[in-house]
């Protein structure tokens, strides 16, 4: 399974900048920026400006109305890293190291305006309720779906797909359904499938771990770490960006809903 990055709706440049921002968050020390004093941006005007900024910086993952998708549903009013003004500011300003939440490249004033908007949409939200049976969904996960062959929940399971610990908090129901039925719709950058065709020897399929102009690194379908110089390759195929099978062909509608319910119940992160 693959749950993540969409290339359907975002222009390439935006995706790239987000990816770079994520990389920056990953490799640079956290900026422990102190938020400036009490917010003076909690006004209707600021909220409207915040809404606009939210579309630019946040909607890709959190949805146009903050309803979630790739990112957490912000309409619940429940924030794992704190819901105070200062905590929301710090989360937006600095990102959350070790997660997909990057630093946001905006001025301090703009960040405060986004805080104002996020607070407004989180005032009366409710947590989505999955219609399926999560216990039956776990049986699908462990049995017919063979999900653990590629995915982990915490320290147990496969490593070819993203770790699903906390996926129910990060992804909404629609996103989970889509990922099961159309896995290639949105594949996280660290889990994109490729197939390398050496000039000699058999092709190798796996997920791309790293790449530059001269070489490419991947984890093959047997979980081995592999690296190839491009000069030794006939071709690199990227036309099937997910290793995950389309589960609409494997599971019936009820099984899918049950699996979605189970995945949605996975709220604890590592």
């Amino acid at each position: 399974m693959a749950f993540g990055n969409s290339n359907r709706i975002r222009p390439r440049s935006v995706r790239r900048s987000l990816s770079l921002a994520a990389c920056a968050a990953f490799f640079t020390p956290v900026l422990l920026t102190q938020p400036p004093g009490p917010s003076s941006f909690d006004t209707p005007e600021s909220r409207e400006q915040g809404r606009s900024l939210f579309q630019t910086h946040c909607a890709y993952c959190h949805g146009a109305r903050g309803e979630g998708g790739r990112g957490v549903d912000l309409t619940t009013g429940v924030y794992r890293h704190g819901g105070s003004d200062a905590e929301l500011y710090a989360t937006i300003r600095n990102g959350i190291p070790g997660t997909e939440m990057p630093t946001v490249r905006a001025t301090n004033d703009e960040v405060w305006k986004m805080v104002s908007f996020v607070k407004s949409i989180g005032a009366g939200g409710v947590v989505e309720s999955a219609p399926g049976d999560r216990v039956a969904g776990k049986a699908v996960y462990d049995g017919k779906g063979k999900c653990a062959a590629c995915h982990s929940i915490g320290a147990e399971g496969g490593i070819l797909g993203p770790n699903l610990a906390g996926v129910g908090r990060r992804r909404n129901l629609a996103y989970l359904r889509e990922s099961l039925v159309t896995p290639e719709a949105d594949v996280p950058v660290l889990y994109r499938a490729i197939q390398v065709m050496p000039k000699t020897g058999p092709p190798v399929r796996g997920i791309r771990l790293n790449e530059d102009d001269l070489s490419i690194q991947l984890r093959d379908s047997q979980n081995n770490l592999r690296s190839f110089f491009k000069e030794e390759l006939k071709e690199i195929r990227r036309d099937k960006p997910s290793l995950m099978p389309a589960y609409g062909d494997v599971l019936n509608a009820q099984e899918l809903e049950n699996l979605v319910a189970y995945l949605s119940s996975l709220r604890e992160t590592l």
Binding site: P198, T200, P202, V204, S215, R226
Partner: peptide
């Protein structure tokens, strides 16, 4: 030179851990 040596490796595999 690097690639010549590399070509000696099986199937172009740099890492075979």
């Amino acid at each position: 030179r690097v690639f010549c040596i590399f070509a000696l490796a099986a199937a172009g595999v740099v890492v075979a851990q």
